[in-house]
Design a protein around this nucleic acid. Sequence first.
DNA 1: AGTTGATCATGA
DNA 2: TCATGATCAACT
Length: 224
Amino acid sequence: MLNNSAEPQNLNELLARAAQIAGLTLGELAAKARIKVPPNFKREKGWTGQLLELSLGASAGSKSQQDFAHLGIELKTIPIDLNGRPLETTYVCYAHLTQIAGIEWHNCNVKNKLKQVLWVPIDGRREITPCDRIIATPFLWSPSIVQDQQLRQDWEELMELIALGKIEKITARHGQYLQLRPKAANGQVLTDAIGPGGNIIQTRPRGFYLRKEFTHAILCEAFN
DNA sequence: AGTTGATCATGA
DNA sequence: TCATGATCAACT
């Protein structure tokens, strides 16, 4: 998907653009971008996120940093139901499983990614065809002191297990707000990780995800 | 293979 | 019914 939209030069420009797409369907926004909407997301799972990047002028190709790096803002679409509840967990970033010495909460990818997020809630009910799904009101969010602490606690617990070579003991049930789950093209993909004896083992790549409970709280305070 | 964008689909 | 574990696509 090509990025033919100019980057917003400042925060107001970005927020103004975001406000303008509220209420549109994905079909209407796709028409503006001159791209086709898939009948479902069985194959193009990240299509909505890419449409929004394109429409809001996110800097494409800039990996491992925020979508709007010059503004320090990350863009996240989030599928919701009629009650405004999240339908899916939210991917944050890839989890490094080796060479984690020196990585602390204050300088980790999770904290950096979530410093400022432009959330774009979208009616994601599966009974509605992607073309007709309506974009709700986008809003800017930064973690509160409490939220930062919640994420930090889970992150530190997970990272400690990883550092102790217990990656294979970690399941998605760990962490109250932040969880670790497989993140790869398929189950055959392997990457290095720390083994039980401090040796290097092969395991499935993992990613950090925000639980629905956490994002629901974010949505609630935004629309209370 | 790594990392981004995520949702799918099956077992519990 | 729903979360976990698996998977899909693009790009590097």
